[in-house]
């Protein structure tokens, strides 16, 4: 393996029409075209998808672990934000 690593790319796969692209993993590649092909070769060998996105990992802006409390904990005790207080008609399944 080369000492000079190629940049990292995040891979997203749409498994079938109507579903979202979901994060599948990452690949190394020298450019976008190669990233797409590497993603195809590594992540779609077993019919995992019908569409691929690749995004340079460095372009992803992530929340920082230190912000965890301020970002996410306030939601813990606000159960009224979940739509669990409505009575759904029987025809609506799997909400």
């Amino acid at each position: 393996m080369s000492a000079k690593e190629w940049p990292l790319w995040e891979v997203f796969i749409r498994s079938k029409n109507g579903l979202h692209h979901r994060h599948a993993g990452s690949v190394h590649a020298a450019d976008a075209q190669m990233a797409l092909e590497n993603a195809r070769d590594i992540y779609t060998r077993r019919q995992e998808g019908i569409s691929l996105w690749v995004v340079p990992s460095k372009e992803i802006v992530a929340s920082s672990p230190e912000d965890k409390e301020a970002f996410f904990e306030p939601a813990v005790d606000k159960i009224y934000r979940h739509p669990t207080f409505y009575v759904l008609p029987d025809e609506v399944n799997n909400m």
């Binding site: 393996m1 190629w6 190394h28 590649a29 092909e37 590497n38 070769d41 060998r45």
Partner: peptide, 12 residues
């Protein structure tokens, strides 16, 4: 392969 990704590509 020179890197993992190309290794798999050639095996495919």
């Amino acid at each position: 392969g020179p890197i993992l990704e190309q290794d798999i590509a050639l095996s495919n």
